[in-house]
Design a protein around this nucleic acid. Structure first.
Lengths: 172, 172
DNA sequence: CCGAACATGTAACCTGTTACATGATTAC
DNA sequence: GTAATCATGTAACAGGTTACATGTTCGG
């Protein structure tokens, strides 16, 4: 069965999440899921996904089922151990509550100190972009068949928090 | 002056942010700033910080001033080109509006599908942790001399958004 | 049948982490 | 003087990214 991995990376967890949601997938389908995702944190680069799935297979967390087509595709799905590992990853409180890497928050402290000529145009552009993303997210929520409704709402809430913060800051 | 770097990494930008805020710093001081930061996204590992600062120096974005102590320390500060690069990094709309890597949001879509025996205890632990962090952040805000007040408020707003989302989800 | 998009990979590179090594300073 | 801590690094490693290479399927 291969030795147990002590911990999953964020990408590995995300990939296994896709497998749980969609059932057995080829690596390409996982990549596609990453790319199509509204909240795309992962580029879904082949150089990350293919090795990651093989790694998980080697660790006994996935089972591979070869497809008999000319492309020699492989359908991966969660093994029992994989399902357990995914649950453990999902319920890792310390990591779930952690901050991650937020480009907005990394930059925010310094926006107040920008040369004012630059600051105005930048803030306008930023707000415009955030609003556009918010609109796109709302669009998705409008679809009656939207999957991951909760996740999309979370995404929306986060963008709105950013917008609200910018607004509050501006007023001061 | 060295050749121009096309783009700064998040850590490089964060390091230069520290230099702008504190003035000339040794690598160790930058590391300390990362570790002390309330919103610590970076471990401030020596293996990242020392090479990063040398990289930026080589690119002409920092100036190095040797200190005449037995430790052969070096004080780094922003060059003119470095200040420009930092401004460009700060005002990179696409990146600032991007989502980054958010462990909470990566996991959130699947919490609904957890075995219910596990889900309850996990959610309680998660809420407890988030509340503890919120309290810690409020603590910082209570200090009258708190620097980066805006940034801390943003941190607080984000944690509250998470808590609110969890609460809303629970009700449904 | 031929070009475009699909699908599977690989190799070189970059950056950050952990763990270690080493010397300087401070507290006692 | 010695132990703890401060401070500066380095080496091995890990995990992603980009760019490339290659074969397959499909639309015209």
């Amino acid at each position: 069965m291969g030795k147990r991995k002590s911990e999953l990376t964020e990408l590995e967890g995300a990939a296994m999440t896709v497998l749980r949601q969609l059932g057995a997938c080829t690596p390409y389908q996982v990549r596609k899921a990453f790319k199509d995702s509204p909240s795309a944190e992962w580029s879904g680069s082949a150089g990350a996904v293919y090795p990651a799935l093989r790694r998980l297979k080697a660790a006994g967390l996935l089972v591979a089922k070869p497809v008999k087509d000319a492309r020699r595709s492989v359908l991966y799905s969660l093994s029992t151990a994989g399902a357990d590992a995914l649950d453990a990853w999902l319920t890792d409180v310390a990591r779930a509550a952690g901050i991650g890497i937020d480009p907005f928050r990394t930059r925010a402290p310094l926006w107040g100190g920008l040369p004012s000529a630059r600051a105005g145009a930048f803030k306008r552009a930023l707000i415009r972009t955030l609003r556009a993303e918010r609109a796109a997210i709302r669009e998705q929520l409008a679809a009656p068949d939207a999957p991951d409704r909760d996740a999309i709402e979370l995404c929306l809430a986060l963008q709105e928090t950013r917008l609200k913060w910018l607004g509050a800051k501006r007023k001061k």
